[in-house]
Amino acid sequence: MNRLHDIEVYSPKTLEEALEILRREGDRVKVIAGGTDLIIQMKDGIMPRKNLLNIYSIDELRYIRMGNDSIRIGALTSFTDIASSALIRNYARILADAANTIGSIQIMNKASIGGNLVNASPAADSIPPLYVLDAVLVLRSVEGVREVPIQSFYRGYKKLDIRSDELLTEVRVRRMAEDEDGIFLKHGLRLGDAISVVNAALLVKWDGDDRFKDVKIALGAVAPTVVRARSCEEALTGKELNDSTIWDAASKVVNDISPIDDVRGTAEYRREMSVNLLYIGLWEIINKRNQAGW
């Protein structure tokens, strides 16, 4: 827990300046956005000490806008802003719900979506919703712009498709349609501020027949990266939905995950929680439709 007494901090005011510094310094600097992950990791020595590129004041990276068929979120946007945005609440509710569970109000006020994505904790709560919302990440450098689908952004545990001269500047998510519903689930060990033992996002598209035309499920904290639960998705798509079919489908998740033991829970517990959380999520989605009188 040593104080960061010997570190230089560059604080550009514009994106352009920031990219220029990144080009020049590359690996010699580390980007700091909200700092809620970085400061602890650097002080604890988990992350090597480096000079910092402070992007916290680049306000042009804070926005939530409606695009043509997507919602565009600036990388520096805080989870408080995401959780309270009418746009996100209306068209990407599961992301707003996830944002609301991130740490505490103090964390939400400072933590950015870009930081959550680049810090790449397997338990990061915004990532599963972004998976099922087909997020695209926009990476910029002085060389140009790259757009990377979220799934190919993550290549392994904290292995990312981002170059040292690139900054994540924007996240784009698909808008949820009228016939779609979804849920974000987080299982932590405390009702207050807690890191996920397992988290999951479910997104379903109803057909006219009370079945799912399409299902997307992503889980966190059960593999080196967030994973899609393809086996469950398959077992649910177009099938009759009742208590036993959703149990069976949820149980298939064990094929898609590879959890480990850590201080918050054993691999075995995480496997069981993955199944049970998906069951709860599916039950809630179906129950809501039944309640609505479909």
């Binding site: 060990l189 405390r190 009702l191 207050g192 501020d193 807690a194 890191i195 201080v263 918050r264």
Partner: peptide, 22 residues
């Protein structure tokens, strides 16, 4: 959590005391 004499829960994010919601 103490494993072979090593305390694993060394901060307030792993050693969880009740919050206002608990």
């Amino acid at each position: 959590k103490i494993e072979q004499g090593i305390l694993r829960t060394i901060n307030l994010s792993t050693y969880l005391i009740p919050s206002i919601k608990d």
